[in-house]
Amino acid sequence: MRQTYRIIVIDDDPITRMDLVEMLQDAGYDVVAEGKNGEEAVRLTQTLHPHLVMMDVKMPGMDGLTAAELIQKSGQAAVLLLTAYSQNEIVAKAKAKGIRACLVKPVLEEELLPTVAFVLSDLSQIR
């Protein structure tokens, strides 16, 4: 039996969120929650214990890098960052915070699904 992975999707753009959720659900993933900022990402991770949190870097309030750092420190979930910027500085910050992967938006299904599978492939380091 294939394991069902729980995923939270966080992005301040509702259209982007909707697209990501649809792609993930069509691939058989269980999207357990959605949110629009880093505060929601941290809170939802603490209450729902997902395997993966996918979130945007630039959001109002707490940004994705700050939220990712808090989630990574707690060891509660893997983090996959989404960004509209492919700048080396953002990649370096994400790597320093233990982020498993980054994707540049707009995210295409043929990039998203293999990246999600890769991030989820080694959950032993998370749990």
Rank of each mutant, 00 (worst) to 15 (best):
Q76R: 13
G75M: 13
Q25T: 08
L113P: 09
V9P: 03
K97W: 05
L81N: 05
K58P: 00
M62G: 02
F118V: 00
V31K: 03
E22C: 06
L82S: 02
A92N: 15
D19G: 04
K105D: 01
K105T: 04
E69H: 08
L70W: 14
A84D: 01
K105A: 01
A41Y: 01
N37E: 11
L112I: 12
Q25K: 08
G35I: 07
N88C: 02
V53M: 11
L123K: 02
S74A: 14
I90M: 11
E109L: 06
P14T: 14
N37T: 05
Q87L: 05
V57D: 04
T45A: 04
K36Q: 10
A77P: 15
I90R: 07
V119E: 13
L80H: 10
K97Y: 12
D26T: 08
T16C: 12
Q76K: 14
V57F: 04
V79R: 12
E89I: 14
E40P: 00
K93W: 12
Q46G: 05
L48Y: 13
R100T: 00
G98C: 09
Q46T: 00
V21P: 09
V32W: 07
V57T: 05
M23N: 05
I99Y: 15
D56Y: 08
H49V: 05
T83P: 05
L103D: 01
G98N: 12
Y85S: 01
P14Y: 10
T47N: 09
S121D: 11
D122Q: 06
T66C: 08
D122H: 08
L123E: 04
V42Y: 02
R43V: 03
L20K: 06
L44W: 03
K105H: 02
K105R: 03
D19Y: 11
Y29L: 04
V32D: 05
K73F: 13
E22F: 13
V32E: 04
L103A: 04
G28M: 12
M62N: 04
G75D: 14
S74H: 07
D13M: 15
V57Q: 03
V91W: 14
V107F: 03
K95I: 10
G38W: 04
A68R: 10
G38N: 03
S121Y: 07
E22G: 07
L80E: 07
P106M: 01
G35T: 08
E111P: 00
L70N: 14
V119P: 13
M54V: 15
V42A: 02
P114G: 13
G75P: 06
